[in-house]
Simulated scan of single mutants.
Amino acid sequence: MPFKPSRPVFAAIAIVAVAAGLAAVYVTERGAVESGGGRCAVAAAKAATLKPLATGDLAALLPADVPADLSDLVLRTADGGERRLADFAGQTLVLNMWATWCVPCRTEMPHLQALQEKRGGPDFSVVALNVDVGGPDKPTRFLNDIGATSLVDLRDPEMRTFNDLKTRGLVLGLPTTFVVDRSGCALASLAGPAKWDSPAALALIDAAAKPDETQSGKP
């Protein structure tokens, strides 16, 4: 039985019109979570450390009790090539799902670009996953027009990834953003826009990207 949405923040979400005929999906109070846990169960401890940081501009962020495994996602590059989220192993990610027709997405994008400029590097990237149906020109033009050219630009032109995550109960509408650890486990999710370059957001990203003892080689 699905959980009910936990906050009224979803009123600000642009619901995907082309998916309106599909079955309803709910975001749980536990954030990006799937039953069973699997290999991402070990990431629950890191997710728990993010709960006190879900404040200010990120008050709607939902850290996961049992993080979902996103490493198996198959994405597309702007030129039609294939890339998997597992290719980013070793990097902490902010994975943002957006579309050019989504007004909150367009408002949020400059903040994601600013986050990439402030924190982007070998250990961290902002991945902008566009779900516009059709050719690549429109999202490319939009990103260029607003100067968001530092983001990892990936696409979901047939909405396969969006619908997969929707079926798994991990996404309701757009924008949706996941904080993903170095192994591809979703530590937290946020439905709706946020100022991802705010002090609250930077503190949370720094905490998420900090290696734990097993990653840093400590006993």
Rank of each mutant, 00 (worst) to 15 (best):
K118V: 01
V171A: 12
R182L: 04
G217L: 07
P193F: 08
L187V: 10
A64M: 12
A48P: 05
L187R: 09
A19E: 15
L73I: 06
E82V: 15
N130V: 01
R182Q: 11
P219Y: 00
P104W: 11
T55E: 15
K218V: 03
A201W: 10
A99R: 01
S35K: 13
Y26G: 15
L165T: 11
W98A: 05
T107G: 10
A14F: 08
Y26I: 14
R141P: 05
L62F: 12
P63K: 04
L174P: 03
D123I: 00
L73Y: 00
W196P: 01
P2R: 14
A191T: 06
G192T: 06
A64G: 11
A12M: 03
L143Y: 06
A194D: 09
E213W: 07
T177S: 15
P157H: 02
L170V: 07
S198P: 05
A188G: 10
V42A: 14
M159I: 12
R119T: 01
S6D: 14
P199N: 14
L170S: 05
T77K: 13
K218L: 12
A54N: 12
E29L: 11
N163G: 04
L70F: 08
C102K: 01
A59K: 10
K46D: 13
V133I: 14
S71F: 04
T214V: 13
L112S: 03
H111R: 01
A54R: 06
V127K: 09
M97I: 12
F3M: 12
T77I: 01
K195G: 04
L58E: 08
P104D: 13
V18K: 00
R30V: 03
T28Y: 10
E158W: 00
A20W: 00
A45R: 15
A188M: 14
C102M: 06
R182V: 13
A89M: 04
K138P: 09
